[in-house]
Amino acid sequence: MQIILATSNKGKVKEIRALFEKDEVVPFSEILGPMEIEENGGTFAENALIKARTIFEELGRDDVIVVSDDSGITVPALGGEPGIFSARYAGEGAGDRDNLEKLVAKLKEKGLAEAPAYYTAAIAIVAPGAEYVVHGWMHGKVITTPRGDGGFGYDPMFVPEGFDKTLGELKPEVKKELSHRSKALKLAQPIIEMLKKRAVR
């Protein structure tokens, strides 16, 4: 069975492909073309399911497993911002740099040079007659002096617990072990394997 990703974010596609090396992993845009999906859920899980269900229905096939991710960073000192709005924190159409700069500015407004923060990843899996959601988290802190050019999103300003480097500075293999998305995908793997076996019967 093909695994269809309900994302066209190149960073996410790369991370997910690395974890499912033996499978054919295809971003939905390669099949359906560009498509906007309104993410109007109130949680990461709800938004992940909205994306996965939409792509599954659009494909109209029973030989695929659709995997979607909704993830973001939460800073309790900012009342939980940006949370589910992480990807569009600086407004619709904003890029990674815009979002990062807004978060840095918000921290500085509060007089904070750093603050505890955590990443959440919700992975939704939709297949014929089946829906699942799993979660992964990564705890640490955000800083107002971004460092490193690795990763994407808020990575240059996030220092994971137990480290003194940002995700933007850490080697990809180290980040992969720590990543909230990796943790969620590891929980998703046995579910996907089970769905693949079920489809063969």
Rank of each mutant, 00 (worst) to 15 (best):
P172F: 06
P128E: 11
D62G: 09
V174C: 05
K176W: 12
P27K: 03
D63C: 05
I123F: 11
G72D: 00
G150R: 12
R201N: 15
D69Q: 01
E101N: 14
E38C: 09
G168R: 00
N99Q: 09
R147A: 11
K183H: 10
M35R: 12
E173H: 12
K108L: 15
Y154D: 03
R201P: 15
V13C: 11
E58K: 15
D23V: 08
N99F: 05
E24D: 12
L170P: 00
R17M: 08
P76Y: 04
P190I: 12
W137D: 14
D70E: 03
L100T: 06
E114S: 13
I31Y: 00
F163I: 08
V200H: 15
F152R: 02
K12W: 04
A45K: 09
K176F: 14
I37Y: 01
A87W: 02
Y154N: 05
G83I: 01
T144K: 09
P160D: 06
G60M: 10
A87D: 04
E161R: 11
R61Y: 03
E36G: 12
K106D: 14
I65C: 03
K186E: 14
E101H: 13
T7V: 07
K196S: 15
E39A: 03
P160L: 02
K141G: 06
V133E: 05
F158M: 04
G33D: 04
Y119K: 10
E38P: 03
P27T: 04
L78H: 01
I37R: 01
E169S: 09
K12E: 02
D63I: 08
E193K: 15
Y89G: 00
G11M: 05
R201H: 14
M35F: 13
H180Q: 10
R97P: 10
A124I: 10
R88S: 06
D96V: 13
K51I: 05
I191T: 07
G91A: 09
K102E: 09
A77R: 06
G111L: 11
A77D: 07
A199F: 13
D155P: 02
L100C: 07
N9A: 06
A52D: 04
